[in-house]
Simulated scan of single mutants.
Amino acid sequence: MEALFASGHAADIVLAALLLEALWLRLRGWKVADLLTMLLPAALIVVGLRAALVGADWPWISAPIALSFPVHIADVVRRRRSL
């Protein structure tokens, strides 16, 4: 288990699960834009986690995490408008 996390493969598994979820939802008729705003923040956070797990420099950890915030806000705005 330690090697799974130290190598970053644990994060890869989560990213694969997010991709499968996106494909499944797309097949069920979800729009690509809706999928992106919903799942991209999680994917970016996991990319930052993966960078931390493998010992990357701090910009590679913080950049995807910081980028997840505006995408999350876009999702919140999109959902608010649909009410």
Rank of each mutant, 00 (worst) to 15 (best):
L36Y: 14
A42M: 11
A66V: 10
W58G: 05
D57V: 06
P41F: 00
A43L: 01
M38R: 15
A52K: 02
L39R: 07
L67I: 15
P41M: 05
I45C: 01
P59R: 10
W58Q: 08
L39P: 07
W58S: 06
A51Q: 01
P41V: 04
T37V: 08
P59S: 11
I65C: 12
W60P: 13
P59L: 13
G55S: 08
D57F: 04
W60S: 11
M38V: 15
I45H: 01
L36A: 12
L36Q: 14
R50E: 09
A42N: 06
A63L: 14
I65Q: 08
S62D: 14
P64K: 01
L40S: 14
S62H: 09
A42K: 07
L49G: 07
A42F: 12
G55N: 06
A52E: 01
P64G: 02
A43C: 03
V47A: 12
L53Q: 02
S62K: 10
W60D: 14
A51H: 01
A63P: 10
L36K: 09
L67Y: 11
A52I: 01
V46P: 00
P59W: 12
L67R: 12
W60R: 08
M38I: 13
L40E: 09
A63W: 14
A43E: 04
T37N: 06
I65F: 15
P64Y: 05
P64S: 07
V54F: 02
V46F: 00
L53I: 04
W60M: 11
G48V: 03
P59Y: 14
A63E: 13
P64C: 07
M38D: 11
I61M: 07
D57T: 08
V46A: 00
A51F: 00
P41I: 03
L40N: 08
D57Q: 12
L39K: 06
M38P: 12
T37Y: 07
